[in-house]
Design a protein around this nucleic acid. Structure first.
Lengths: 211, 211
DNA sequence: AGCGGTTTCAAACACTTGTTTGAAACAGAT
DNA sequence: ATCTGTTTCAAACAAGTGTTTGAAACCGCT
């Protein structure tokens, strides 16, 4: 447990993240992991104690990086002075990510696997983290004075907005691809604008300006 | 290939759908499938030719049922006379489904697995089906006179609206649960309303009624 | 009853899986 | 150089995998 053993131990973890994210827990084999890491097969048991433990470590590490990336976008947006600008920037950035990224990144894929077949402990960790983000979105909505009084309503609204981020960063890349950066930028701004317009409209529940 | 063999053959398919959706392709074992179906292990090879072929059959069948369920909601909404009412009803129903359903259903989980680790042939089938739905949503947007002229913009908008359906029927149930039916109804109507308000607003791109 | 084709079955097959093992190689301190 | 604890390695292990096999059971038919 020294810090000098960051050679093989870290290489195993990196390879594990990649393989687990590509194939899931069951589909991944320790032989492929150690092959990619370029180390002996016994390393995974020696350093981590087994495949399951290695998976948990990979998930933890991937979640951290996922969280950090999210936090970076979030904090960057939150640093703006105007609250509406904060929301617009956050939405636009996350949408843009989905339109331009060529493939789902490892942490998001790992999250996906975990959602589909939850490991008891891990799914709790994930749930907690997701709900923390939802809390932050709720706070932003309160800043904007558009948070509904009703608790479930407010929570669903925050959850829904967060859903946009997840949707555009996971599934959308499979179905749509922007041509160039300018185009992506324009589309992202447009969608973000529609989301925000929906938020602020107070003429609720009635069909507006129909045919 | 008679129609009288619907006994074991169909039982295997049903069990396969369940097990594959719970554990994914790699995680599922033919032994568990045949155990649930209550048939001999050789049946899967005899009737389907192998695990992979059985998986494809399950995926096909699940996609059909998923499509049918979607089409039912869609057609029901589309039968309304007013176009805005069509959209509102569709959005509300799909949101409601996510708020009230206790767990992700088999077809959606299978879809999820396939998205995470696409089988070459299967992912094409899925893509095609999803894109067909997006086409229909585009048509509805044209009916509403809110479809942007730009193609990518229009497509992204349709895709985004469809994303709501998927989002609320797959991930949201993990994070939120409505208390009773009345509550769920109210929340679903609220979110649908916000979505539609965003659509119709023409005061685009500028921050509205800020602090 | 007897026949031909289809379907089921228990047992075995070849193979891959995660894990263990015991020796060899290494690093640092004396 | 020698000893100590740590790390790497090739080889082997037991368990579980999808698949095959050849015989038994079943079916509708004459």
């Amino acid at each position: 447990m020294d810090s000098r053993d960051m050679g093989t131990r870290a290489r195993v973890l990196a390879a594990a993240e990649a393989v687990f994210s590509e194939r899931g827990f069951e589909g991944a084999t320790v032989r492929e992991i150690v092959a990619r890491a370029g180390v002996n097969i016994a390393s995974v048991n020696y350093h981590y104690g087994g495949k399951s433990a290695l998976y948990e470590a990979s998930l933890q590490s991937a979640l951290d990086r996922f969280g950090n990336r999210f936090d970076a976008t979030w904090n960057d947006a939150r640093s703006r002075s105007d609250a509406w600008e904060q929301l617009r920037l956050f939405l636009k950035k996350t949408i843009l990510l989905g339109l331009t990224s060529q493939q789902i990144t490892a942490p998001e894929k790992l999250l996906g696997w975990e959602i589909l077949s939850p490991t008891d402990q891990a799914s709790d960790i994930i749930k907690r983290r997701c709900l923390d983000r939802v809390d932050e979105m709720e706070a932003l909505l309160c800043d904007l004075n558009v948070a509904p009084d009703d608790e479930l309503e407010r929570r669903t609204l925050a959850l829904w907005l967060m859903g946009q981020a997840i949707w555009f960063s996971t599934l959308a890349p499979h179905l749509i691809q922007a041509g160039d950066m300018d185009e992506a930028n324009r589309v992202a701004e447009n969608i973000a604008g529609k989301l925000m317009n929906g938020l602020v409209s107070t003429i609720d529940e009635k069909q507006p300006a129909s045919i």
